[in-house]
Amino acid sequence: MSELRDAAGLRILIVGASSGIGHAVARRAAARGATVAVAARRVELLTELAESIGGTAFELDVQDAKAIEKVVPQAVESLGGSVDAVLFTSTVVPFAYIEDTDVATWLHAYAVNALGANYVLRASLPHLSEDGVVLITSSREVGRPRAGVAAYDASKAALDEILNAWRSEHPDLSLIRVGMGPTEDTEILRGADRDLLEELFKSWVEHGQLPAQMSELDDVANTLVSLVTAAYANPSVVPEIVQLSPRIRKRPSKEETGS
């Protein structure tokens, strides 16, 4: 199958692209023809990515509203003064039982997952092209909380309400909220306490909250790019809320594989 080039000519800013989903989205968007600017905290990884896809990199901590106000216009300028799509994929997942979740952890989760997305959207709004699209990743698990991720779940629920307010006050905005399901190779467990994770995994399995398989990273990235290209090409329609879930595929039996 030949490579899609349906994003050719699109100017895209991806926030949270140093690893995981944002990194994969940047690669897929560039492969499909887009001009890409990327922003995140880990500038060394970001610079390497930008060089590999012919894009531009900007250091940005999404907890810093003033930095967002400064960096977003710079990134837009690197794209030619306007942007056709902004994707916010930055996220933090603090793992802790709710009684052990301290104030700093709660504030950090809200600052990145909810307020960071809000301020990036606000800073991007004046620079969107006429049919411009904003895509923000949330969580498929909002309303279905699991043990050990209270700050994450609550911050994503807050994000959903923030996006509802944006839709109410800006009905002309093409705003896509994507509930992300379990995805491979995202670094979501980076730095987490392994003993705690073992306990949490057991709880999730017992409550049927851990799928047998996870979505592949490149498939998720391609899906997000496709949502953007479809929304941009069809500006009278907004896919407002999209949920991504792993497709649990039947594993071949020994008889089928001949082993």
Rank of each mutant, 00 (worst) to 15 (best):
P94D: 08
V43M: 12
L115P: 01
V62L: 03
Y97N: 12
A57L: 02
A104I: 10
G55M: 07
I53Q: 03
A40F: 09
L115S: 07
A117M: 07
L115D: 02
T47Q: 15
V71Y: 02
G54H: 03
H108N: 14
S124I: 10
A65F: 09
L128P: 11
L125Y: 13
S124G: 09
N118F: 13
K70C: 11
A50Q: 06
L115A: 12
A37T: 09
E69S: 14
T105M: 12
S124L: 09
E69C: 01
V112Y: 06
S90V: 10
T101Q: 04
P73D: 06
F88Y: 15
A85P: 07
L46F: 05
K70Q: 15
L49T: 12
F58K: 05
L128R: 06
F88G: 08
V43H: 13
N118G: 10
G55N: 08
F95Y: 14
Y119F: 14
Q74F: 01
I68Q: 01
L87I: 14
E51L: 12
S124K: 10
A50I: 00
A96W: 01
V76D: 07
S90R: 03
S82A: 14
L49D: 07
E99F: 03
L125G: 10
V38K: 03
V36Q: 08
V71T: 15
D84Y: 01
Y97A: 11
S90W: 00
L107V: 04
V43E: 14
Y119V: 08
T101N: 02
L125V: 11
G116F: 00
T35E: 12
Q63Y: 00
N113A: 06
D64Y: 02
I98D: 05
G54W: 01
L107G: 01
L121N: 10
A40T: 06
A40L: 09
V71I: 15
G80C: 10
S90P: 05
D102I: 02
T47L: 12
A37N: 04
V112P: 03
R42M: 10
L60S: 08
L60A: 09
E69F: 02
P126C: 13
E51W: 04
G81H: 08
A67I: 11
H127L: 10
V120R: 02
S52N: 06
S82H: 13
A123R: 10
T47N: 15
D64M: 01
A65H: 11
Q74T: 07
D61Q: 05
G55F: 02
A57S: 08
